[in-house]
Simulated assay, not measured.
Amino acid sequence: MTVSYTATVDVTGEGRNGGTARSDDGLLEHDLAIPKELGGAGTATNPEQLFAAGWAACFLGALRRAAALRKVRLTSTEITAEVTLSQDEDGEFGLSAALHPRIGGVDQQTAQELAEAAHQICPYSKATRGNIAVTVTATAV
Rank of each mutant, 00 (worst) to 15 (best):
M1W: 03
T2V: 14
S4E: 13
Y5N: 05
T6E: 13
A7Q: 05
T8C: 01
V9L: 02
D10H: 08
V11G: 00
T12R: 07
T12F: 03
G13Q: 04
N17A: 15
N17S: 14
G19M: 06
G19V: 01
D25E: 02
D25F: 09
G26E: 01
L28C: 03
L28P: 01
D31L: 00
L32Y: 01
L32C: 02
A33G: 08
I34K: 07
P35W: 06
P35R: 09
E37P: 05
E37R: 09
E37G: 06
L38H: 09
L38V: 09
G39L: 05
G42P: 00
T43P: 00
T43C: 02
N46T: 06
N46C: 08
E48G: 08
E48C: 04
Q49C: 06
F51D: 03
W55H: 07
W55G: 05
C58P: 00
F59M: 05
F59R: 07
G61R: 09
A62I: 08
L63G: 12
L63Y: 10
L63D: 12
R65I: 13
A67N: 07
A68L: 12
A68D: 15
A68S: 15
L69E: 15
L69F: 06
R70E: 15
R70S: 15
V72D: 12
R73E: 15
R73C: 04
R73V: 14
L74F: 13
S76F: 09
E78V: 05
T80F: 02
A81V: 11
E82S: 11
V83M: 14
T84A: 14
L85Y: 03
S86L: 07
S86Q: 12
S86G: 14
D90Y: 10
D90F: 09
G91A: 12
E92S: 13
G94K: 11
L95K: 10
L95A: 08
A97L: 06
A97F: 01
A98Q: 15
P101G: 14
I103T: 12
I103M: 13
I103E: 14
G105P: 06
G105V: 04
G105D: 11
V106W: 01
V106L: 01
D107N: 14
D107Y: 09
Q108K: 07
Q108P: 06
T110Y: 02
A111P: 13
Q112I: 04
Q112Y: 05
Q112V: 05
L114G: 03
A115K: 01
E116P: 04
E116T: 12
A118G: 10
A118I: 11
H119V: 00
H119I: 02
H119T: 04
Q120T: 12
I121C: 11
C122D: 15
P123G: 11
Y124S: 07
Y124R: 10
S125R: 02
K126T: 12
K126F: 08
A127M: 10
R129I: 05
G130V: 04
N131V: 07
I132H: 06
A133L: 06
A133N: 08
A133G: 06
A133F: 03
V134L: 07
V134Q: 06
T135K: 04
T135P: 03
T137P: 05
A138F: 14
A138T: 12
A138G: 14
A138M: 12
T139M: 08
